[in-house]
Amino acid sequence: MRDIHQIVPVSLGDRSYDIHIGPGLLAKSGELVADVLPPGARAAVVTDENVARYHLDSVLASMEAFGIGATVVRVPAGEPSKCYPTLQDVVERILDARLERGDAVIALGGGVIGDLAGFAAAIARRGMRFVQMPTSLLAQVDSSVGGKTGINSPHGKNLVGAFYQPQLVLADTDALDTLPDREFRAGYAEVVKYGLIDRPDFFAWLERQWPAIRAGGPERINAIAESCRAKSAVVARDERETGDRALLNLGHTFGHALEAAAKFDPEIIVHGEGVAIGMVMAHEFSARMNLASPDDAKRVAAHLETAGLPTNLNGLKAVAGNADRMLDFIAQDKKVTRGALNFILTRGIGQAFVARDVPASEVHAYLAGAIGE
């Protein structure tokens, strides 16, 4: 594995773009953004109150140095901002600034900001240029790459949105030093996911290198770059999730149901924690279906616990409620096809696959056991 500043390409024909990964990228963001915008272009920088405190001045100074006029659009921090009223507010403020189709919407923040700003870019003036500047680990390895944008609905997570690719992704690894510990660990769940899908050697490397990744330095950059390479390869094969890209949802069907059951309250559970629990549940359910060894689920849980992540429903049983309630949320998931339940299951570490027409009765029985009914 290589280290320091890395560039990972996302190959999508005339919509291809690069992911830059390394330290100090926000301070030189103006130079990199200017390379993908037409002369004289302006930008709306969408960010939240927390991220703005640490990074906004640096980005604005770099934009000004390279002649990019910027309008700042601040939104409240947290998952509740992924909603219709906030989306409308962001779009109207972009239009109030008289930004044009050739101008850019820049997402400066974590996954919430990236999803929200990306969706705004997709619909404002029927499509503006879009740049991702992810400041959380989860956003750098997952949500900023691949073009998924959107907001939540009372029916479930990310049910309203669009596939809309950015022109550029700048993953400044220095930004991760300002993250709360909980957010960093939650983002790490998405890193682990790539090893569990089809890179068992990467998972084994993560088991050895977690302390160094947490500490920062070359191992952290390598882990992010390898995650981006894994996602880039899948997106290049299946941009709109009609086949292989569904594998990236390992753990997400169970995890999204938990988030929806908690009404997306970050005080209860954040996305990466839901994914961590969901990945263990996916391995446990695979073992229940005689597809994989129970030892695989134990190994996954052990590593996630070492990283300080939750791996079961202990403490969340009141949120989950009962198996019927959880199954209702799962039935609203985007992986459902004409009422049939689709899951990402596994035959072992690094052997994930799309399982179609999974019997609801089996899922119900597993959930009842996990909840302790």
Rank of each mutant, 00 (worst) to 15 (best):
I4V: 10
G13D: 13
D14Q: 15
R15N: 14
S16M: 12
H20K: 13
G24L: 13
A27P: 03
S29D: 03
G30S: 01
V33S: 01
D35H: 13
D35P: 07
V36R: 05
A44E: 02
L56K: 11
M63E: 04
M63S: 12
A65L: 06
G69I: 06
A70G: 00
T71F: 15
V72D: 04
V72W: 02
R74G: 01
P76R: 14
P76F: 05
P80D: 08
C83T: 12
Q88F: 11
V91F: 00
R93M: 00
R93I: 04
A97E: 04
R98S: 10
E100M: 12
R101T: 03
V112L: 04
A121Q: 05
I123Q: 00
R125D: 05
M128E: 05
R129S: 03
Q132R: 14
M133S: 01
L138W: 00
A139G: 01
V141L: 06
G150Y: 07
P154C: 03
G156K: 09
K157T: 06
K157L: 09
F163P: 01
P166G: 01
L179K: 11
D181H: 14
A189K: 07
V191K: 08
Y194I: 08
L196G: 02
I197G: 03
I197Y: 00
R199A: 10
R199S: 06
P200T: 10
D201V: 15
F202D: 03
E207C: 11
Q209I: 10
Q209M: 09
P211M: 09
G216Y: 05
A225D: 01
A225I: 04
S227T: 12
R229F: 11
K231N: 04
A233H: 09
A233W: 06
V235E: 01
T242E: 14
A246T: 05
L248N: 00
N249K: 09
G255I: 02
A257Y: 01
E259W: 02
E259F: 08
A262Y: 05
K263Y: 12
D265I: 07
P266N: 12
I269S: 02
H271V: 11
V275D: 00
G278F: 05
E284C: 14
A287V: 14
R288S: 06
L291V: 08
A302W: 09
H303G: 04
H303R: 11
L304V: 04
E305G: 12
T311N: 03
L313M: 10
A318H: 13
V319E: 02
V319H: 13
G321A: 07
N322E: 10
A323W: 09
D324N: 11
R325F: 07
L327H: 07
A331C: 07
A331K: 14
Q332D: 04
D333M: 15
K335Q: 10
L341M: 12
I344Q: 08
G348F: 11
G348L: 12
A352P: 03
F353V: 13
F353I: 15
R356L: 14
D357V: 14
P359A: 11
P359C: 07
A360L: 04
S361D: 09
A365W: 11
L367M: 15
A370Y: 11
